[in-house]
Design a protein around this nucleic acid. Sequence first.
DNA 1: GAGTGGTCTAGACCACCTT
DNA 2: AGGTGGTCTAGACCACTCA
Lengths: 234, 234
Amino acid sequence: MTNHYMALRDSLARRIAVKEMVPGTKLPSERILHSEYDMARGTVREALFQLEAEGLIYRRDRSGWYVSQTPIIYDPTRWAGFMTYVAEQGRVPTTKTLSKTTETVPDAAGVFDSSPDQSFHVIRRRRAIDGHPVLIERIVVHPDIAPGLLAHDLDQSLTQVLKTDYGVSVARNQVTMRPCSLVRDEAAALGVKPGTPGFMVERTSFSADGKIVEYDHEYWRRDAFVISFDLSVV
Amino acid sequence: MTNHYMALRDSLARRIAVKEMVPGTKLPSERILHSEYDMARGTVREALFQLEAEGLIYRRDRSGWYVSQTPIIYDPTRWAGFMTYVAEQGRVPTTKTLSKTTETVPDAAGVFDSSPDQSFHVIRRRRAIDGHPVLIERIVVHPDIAPGLLAHDLDQSLTQVLKTDYGVSVARNQVTMRPCSLVRDEAAALGVKPGTPGFMVERTSFSADGKIVEYDHEYWRRDAFVISFDLSVV
DNA sequence: GAGTGGTCTAGACCACCTT
DNA sequence: AGGTGGTCTAGACCACTCA
């Protein structure tokens, strides 16, 4: 290709590859690239969109473009909760509770096989790696499983709280992951532009006796992880 | 949001959701949308890019925009080869061999722990679901494992050929998946625009005695699948 | 308040697909 | 040959971040 925007893409990709620009580095502004590379600003933006789609850079709304952090390795077969998992890779996980409420949840009725009037504990949290927010989640827990759950400090591992304080542990996870785009709340909470590519993870956790322990929606930044696992053939 | 392009996005997304436009339907051309919705063509394209990132539509280079096919469910824990797997979901898998050669493969030397001069069997194939190409792959096999492999018909399950004709079966897979963008060969073979979002899957298959059976790179269309699995906690 | 990205316009020409 | 998307230009103004 001899496209202008691909030329700029390649130039920036190389500067990232050789670590002239490391994770977290702010790229030159669009107008500076526009004058340095002598192409229209719209063309500069095409190059940046390309790099964003590849997961090499991301944008903070109206702040600038930045080199993406090193992704964590997401191994669904070894998943042991965010806090454990991230720490095992030598990174620093943090959690911030955004809200905790008890309310009806239209899309949970089908999952829990309950009446539409049923109220649930709903917890919204933001989780970060090395101080960089990577996902927000909405967790739905049936109050019968964990009465008074919301009184606890939930900036820690929920898995841990449920096990220690309620004697409930997870025996099985049902997980679905699909590409999405991060909009409104999700984008705002993660500090990225609405429409940024993301990944939606829907997780239903069951206890050994088949009860639903939690029903979870997670919205991840797409550049935050790669999926990797090792698997014996059955 | 009251953005023009988000309004158009929402309008088109709704028409897809209510099945006014079904998978495979060609969208109105950009210029028609431009005049119907009375916004600049660049703004129309922003809406289309948004829908593409969400996996709802895709483009065939210089042909038009189309509603994406229903994704298949990719369950890494049940993976039994493309042909088996797709058929189990009531869809029709096909495979076309693009090339088969014996050559040196720079990036395979590290994986096989062999000399850079080592030649391998290299197979390139394109695989489709219901007639729609969804991935291309490059498979690398050590000739000692399967001498004369390239003489076989490879438009079928390679797993099957290796098992039946060479007595080699896969006991373990090491898999890594990451977002990428489909460029040059990949995009051309899949009939999508270079730069279309994709997923790269790198797979190393081992036999029971720990030998590498195949080393595989797959480039998937990102809208072709969702990942879903059911998993017991260890 | 200066600088940044976000949105939008109104063109132009090109490369390629389709018929 | 006509239509499509692909690329590119040169502006403009807005909403927001940051110092």
